[in-house]
């Protein structure tokens, strides 16, 4: 099958007081029609920057795509003008953000914000748009749609607002939905409701989803394939089975070990990878992960590993064989 989205050698820079800083370094991945790809990684690994660069929204901040291609249905989004991109956004590709509490405009009603995204891509009369908006709200599981349409964001709970955001994102039947940690700000019951909703919707409207999360448990539930990011690079990618059954990167392994075990005793302290993610201005030489890595060798301190491809999966680690063998021994 042909891929829907292909990110090719993408690098992203941010303008800082003194020159540029590279936030995303040469990443490549693809998304096929109808599949869910999860991008996982700790806070600050560049997940949001990746999603914003696909939408070309970084230009409105201090970011810029330094290199690479983003092919969506064979069109290179990197070369498009902002006006051309405007027609892609919300229409072919939609995004929902990390912060439902602040993602909706506080001075406009839910109805207005929904209708606006419908009419900016489709030429339909106001009345039809209103009806479609009501249907969308019902689709994402909101009751009393006629009341909700006239309410303002502050009158809704966080979970409700995220549902509204999803409705807005789905307004024009996008082929790709990017969900940037859609549940991080919500409590656990709402989180599972939203994830179930996204999964149901994916099957109903047949779209692809890029779900960004730092929660491996979430990824296990919904992903077809997983992309693991660390400090602006992709360190490993593969199918959900490959990643969970046989992680080949020490970082992935660490992430998996830090998933809370539901059956285990409560008091048991959670495993966490030692150390912290480095700041972009102070990246270590060699492999970016080596200061935190228990497999690190002299080679890891000196040179950065490339992504090696094999068996339909990719990993960037000098010692991946040792990581695999280690698992067998356990």
């Amino acid at each position: 099958m042909k891929e829907l989205l292909r990110v090719e050698n993408l690098s992203v820079d941010f303008q800082k007081e003194k020159g540029f800083i590279r936030a995303i370094d040469n990443i490549s991945f693809e998304v096929y029609p109808g599949e869910t790809v999860c991008i996982v990684g700790e806070s600050g690994s560049g997940k949001s920057v990746t999603s914003l660069s696909i939408m070309r929204l970084l230009e409105y901040e201090n970011g810029k795509i330094a290199n690479g291609e983003i092919l969506f249905n064979d069109q290179n989004l990197v070369e498009m003008s902002q006006e051309q991109m405007r027609q892609v956004r919300g229409n072919d590709i939609s995004i929902i953000f990390q912060e439902p509490m602040t993602a909706l405009n506080p001075v406009f009603t839910i109805g207005k914000q929904l209708i606006e995204s419908i009419v900016s891509h489709k030429h339909v009369p106001k009345k039809v748009a209103w009806e479609q908006a009501c249907e969308l709200l019902a689709l994402v599981g909101i009751n009393d749609v006629n009341v909700r349409m006239k309410q303002y964001p502050h009158e809704l709970s966080g979970g409700m607002r995220q549902r509204v955001m999803i409705a807005i994102a789905l307004a024009c039947n996008p082929k790709l939905l990017i969900a940037d940690e859609p549940t991080t700000a919500l409590d656990v019951t709402i989180e599972s409701q939203i994830l179930t909703l996204l999964n149901d919707l994916k099957n109903k409207v047949h779209m692809s989803i890029v779900l960004i999360t730092h929660d491996m448990g979430v990824a296990a539930e919904v992903a077809d394939r997983i992309v693991v990011m660390y400090a602006g690079k992709i360190v490993e990618q593969g199918t959900v089975y490959q990643i969970f059954d046989e992680p080949t990167h020490p970082y992935t392994k660490g992430l998996l070990q830090s998933i809370p075990n539901e059956s285990g005793p409560r008091e048991e302290r959670l495993y966490s990878i030692k150390g912290n993610i480095p700041s972009l201005s102070q990246l270590p030489a060699g492999c970016r992960f080596h200061p935190r890595c228990e497999y690190a060798t002299e080679q890891c301190k000196k040179s950065e590993p490339d992504l090696v491809v094999g068996n339909n999966r990719k990993v960037a680690c000098w010692n991946f064989e040792r990581v695999i063998n280690d698992k067998v021994e356990q």
């Binding site: 405007r86 892609v88 506080p106």
Partner: peptide, 16 residues
Amino acid sequence: QNYIRTSRAKGIKERT
């Protein structure tokens, strides 16, 4: 603000 980013992500005109 985040909602301005949202409104751009919806694909409405920059003027709006």
